[in-house]
Computed example of a mutant assay.
Amino acid sequence: MGISTEPEIDTFFRYLLKAKFANTQSEGKRFDDDYHREMFKNDINNILQLKHNPSEVKKFLENTFTYYTQLYTKIWKSYSNYGNGFDHVFFNKLNEMDGQFLLILSSCKLNDAEEDEKIEKISYELDRFFALHQLQNAYESNVFNQTLYKISSEIRDGTLDNIRGTFDKYLLEQLSKQRNSEAKEPIQYAFFRNTGINLNMRFKRYFFARIEKFIAENTNLNMKHPFENLVTKTGPKNGFHIEHILSRNEENLKLFNEDEDTFEQERNRLGGILLLKGKDNISSGNESYLQKLKSYNNTLYWNETLREDFYKSKLDIRNFKNKYSLDEMIPLSTKFGPDELESRQRLLFKMIKIIWN
């Protein structure tokens, strides 16, 4: 689902009509073309009563149209720029999750007293829904988009109370189906353990941007780079790229019994990769781990957690670790092999459970 280049008022009407009258993706398609005609067909007109009815048209414009255009504009402002009040609306934009327009318009009833809470809640839940699908190898775009309509139909004009339960119901259903194993929790380590190689590059950058933000906020540190840049900038000089902690060399291959397939799978797990700025990524090359460790100094905080000097005499770091029981968050200053990689994967799992609780 995406925002088109058509006039914004047409995009608004399509989302509104889908939000209020479509229970499935196929039902929503009726509004993709000439939605003006669809509004006056019997099933819709029986509700809106706009056909040949000037008084109802006036009432619609003064009430329904005015309220929902203002709501749409509020969402759009946070969608367009980071820091406009609803961070997760912007995060969803970075992942091209425009289904939040459908879901928020669906959930908010006319002059909804819980409007701001619903924008915040739904944008967060959609981000969580998407991320936990991705991080557990359960994302399939067609099914995902179809599911958003099911969620829309269940939260339509509803209350805040049923939003998390509705998202979780479909999350568990899809996890169970895709992983061919019953999902009892929204996130399970067995589903996350090997995640990394399957993810697209943009989501990997987004994931590490969220980890970076999480560390910064909880240790009273400022982000070193704008959040959006970590996700969207990809140029060779100032862009951000994925870095393998384990370079492809004979020394590292021996750590995995010289099994090429295992080595490639393991070094691509999220615990075995980092986000580096372009020139840093190039300079680290295929060096040994101890040489790479030097190049991680003054990069992103997640990278620096590998280094001993990140922890020295820093009370905020210790408090952060203790608050969330992040026992695996320790310097790895001598070696990085299978055990260390597994420890980093488990540390990320703990952080995921907090960020997308």
Rank of each mutant, 00 (worst) to 15 (best):
S78T: 03
L50Q: 06
G2M: 04
Q25Y: 14
F40H: 13
F13P: 08
K41W: 04
Q49I: 00
K18Q: 15
P54V: 11
I47L: 15
K20W: 12
N23P: 05
K41I: 14
Y72R: 00
P54T: 06
K58T: 14
S78A: 03
S4C: 07
K29G: 08
H52C: 05
F91G: 00
Q49V: 05
S80F: 04
Y35H: 08
L17M: 15
L48N: 06
S80T: 10
L48H: 05
Y82D: 12
I75F: 04
Y15G: 11
F86Y: 15
M39H: 02
A19Q: 08
A22V: 11
T64N: 01
F86S: 06
T69H: 01
N63P: 02
G28R: 05
I9Y: 14
E27H: 01
D10C: 04
A19I: 13
H52S: 08
I9F: 13
N45L: 07
W76F: 01
T64H: 02
Y67N: 02
T24G: 02
V89W: 00
F31H: 08
F31Q: 08
Y35S: 10
T24L: 09
S78W: 04
T64D: 03
L50D: 08
P7L: 12
D32M: 04
N46K: 13
S80V: 01
D10S: 13
D43M: 03
T5I: 14
E8D: 13
N84K: 10
K20A: 06
T11V: 15
N23T: 10
H52R: 11
Y15V: 13
R30H: 03
Q49D: 07
E6Y: 12
Y68K: 06
K74C: 03
Y35W: 15
P7G: 09
I3S: 03
D10A: 12
E6G: 03
D33C: 01
Y82S: 08
F40D: 04
L61Y: 10
T5M: 09
Y35M: 08
I9R: 09
T5W: 10
Y68A: 06
F60R: 05
N92H: 00
Y35C: 11
T73Y: 01
F21E: 12
E6A: 14
K58S: 15
A19P: 11
K77D: 06
N84S: 06
T73N: 06
S4V: 03
F21W: 12
G85H: 03
L48S: 07
T73D: 06
K29F: 14
M39W: 02
Q49E: 13
Y82N: 04
N42S: 13
M39P: 09
H36Y: 13
N63G: 06
Q25H: 07
L48A: 09
G85N: 01
L48C: 10
M1S: 05
N42L: 12
N45A: 05
I44N: 03
A19Y: 11
K41P: 02
F12Y: 15
S55N: 07
F65P: 02
Y67L: 07
Y15E: 14
P54W: 07
A19K: 05
T24C: 06
T5E: 13
E62F: 05
Y79A: 00
H88Q: 05
L16Y: 15
D32Y: 07
K18V: 14
Y82G: 01
